[in-house]
Design a protein around this nucleic acid. Sequence first.
DNA 1: TTGAAAGCGCTACCAC
DNA 2: GTGGTAGCGCTTTCAA
Lengths: 341, 341
Amino acid sequence: MNLKELAQHLNLSPTTVSRALNGYPEVKETTRRRVEEAAREFNYMPNAWAKGLATGRSMSIGHVMPTSKMHEMVNPVFGDFITGASETYVKEGYDLKLTPVDDGDEAQRYRALRTRGNVDGFIVHGPHLTDGRIALLREIGLPFVVHGRASNMPADYPWIDMNNRRAFERATALLIELGHRRIALVNGLEHMDFAHRRREGFLAALASHGLVPDPALMRGGEMTERLGYRAAADMLDGTSPPTAFLVSSMVTAIGVRRALHERGLELGRDVSVIIHDDDLGYLRNGDDVPIFTATRASVREAGRRAAEMLLRMIRDPACAPLQSLMEAELILGRSTGPAPR
Amino acid sequence: MNLKELAQHLNLSPTTVSRALNGYPEVKETTRRRVEEAAREFNYMPNAWAKGLATGRSMSIGHVMPTSKMHEMVNPVFGDFITGASETYVKEGYDLKLTPVDDGDEAQRYRALRTRGNVDGFIVHGPHLTDGRIALLREIGLPFVVHGRASNMPADYPWIDMNNRRAFERATALLIELGHRRIALVNGLEHMDFAHRRREGFLAALASHGLVPDPALMRGGEMTERLGYRAAADMLDGTSPPTAFLVSSMVTAIGVRRALHERGLELGRDVSVIIHDDDLGYLRNGDDVPIFTATRASVREAGRRAAEMLLRMIRDPACAPLQSLMEAELILGRSTGPAPR
DNA sequence: TTGAAAGCGCTACCAC
DNA sequence: GTGGTAGCGCTTTCAA
């Protein structure tokens, strides 16, 4: 059933039916009602292609994410974020076009999506510190929202982000106040913006307490179990081992625990650990360790908000770029850890 | 730059240009070359909407996945699978339309995608044992491929799946041959097809060795750390504790380990464990435990294949439904575990 | 308040 | 081998 047929059924012109369905004011109320009813009855849905062709809008949003580091973002933040965004899209009749893209040919893919007229806007996932995509997207001229930030770029684009810096600052301060002086940081890949900010928070807290960071106690990498194990093992076997760890991601923390366990060290007795992770429900490793976290619900919320920001920009290209910072939640474990030995 | 303008530049008709670009045979080779060159030069890309409208094909594929259980599939298989599928799509000029959908209103969303003419086919993720979507999709009439299977449905649809049954059968047999008689199964949610098949494999191996399954030693649930912990704790504290565990997912296995550790039991000394997981690179918990696994590469391969199957069906609706079973790989740990005490 | 008609950019049929 | 032209289903002037 298409518009024309529907119009014939109603003894109306396609024009009027179109207007009625799209909320134009000049349609008589009774007519509109009649049309809407018939549309429901025949389960009429406008053909997206014709509509796109006629309006120039595609009613779909491109989500582009680098695949080589996929696990960093996909797992698990990405799923929840996208679910949140979809809630908004569905409500507003938009589709979500997912484009995993190799780190290399990003520019190509963005341009293609743009030129073929396939999307009305972009969500950018997993920004690096210096992320070329922002300049690229600006040049391309479609609205976009960044999930995260790119610290080394002028901050005049719209973004939504967790306050990673603050979470790590608070976590570090907490450990310092417990009496720790040698605190290890096991971080994500530090060319990723979120990891960089976490590090900054860590350093800021040290500095404001008059502590000097020890490079031997700072490590970054893909957030795997293996990284946690290697980093902790090296540090614990080093000349002056840490008494506390601050760990990016639960998975990495598991590796840290393995290294502790191998050395007969007990968490909460010999060593303190604080974890930051965005995936609580899935992998909660007991409740013995304090966690800074973006809960699943709040990541979803972030997705919803990002989508709303983007749709607003699509509708009103002149509107100011919104920026939104969300706070991580602190969940205290049973033991916040001991004073250092 | 659109087709008409490009044609004018070349002093050709739009028709010829279109034919040249779409590989029709009746174009003179020199003309084709001229056209292709110009297209590249002006960075011409056809407007997807016009093309869709004219051809009736959307050049995009819908990936629909239930969100309520999202972590089960999203994490981490989904990312790799979709990356693989995208490789195929990009090559063939297709887009990937992602639709997270609440378990409830699936029918609606599928129909909408179909009626609005938005997709040419579907990939179905995370099938349940009795999955209504298969009947629904058949009724809707677009080609689809299921990532996984639905055991309780007639198996005449196209699917691609890991051989979960066989992996668990082999794993169980391995434990039995080591001398274990009381083997625990910590499984995923058993209304999910993959989990059901794993259980079947487990039971089959017991049966073929003349062992009777003990319901107290079988547990299913969301594959979280907590499930592993609870299940193992209950079983170990029960009247006749298991001497070996077979665990679905690395994350769950971490919980099992915690329970063991709490009780002073050591893995590889007091108890054997075999894990099945599809996410090796990310969360490899040491190399001390044997793992059945679909490697990241093979999951990607599965995505590629599924996409190819689907595109084939789209092009030739009459073609027979392909079905493809992939074998999990066994990676032996340093210790395969002891004989039972 | 409604309708007729002209496109949107492309493909595909038919004629040359 | 190439070109003219009629749609695909919708929106959007302009006219009534």
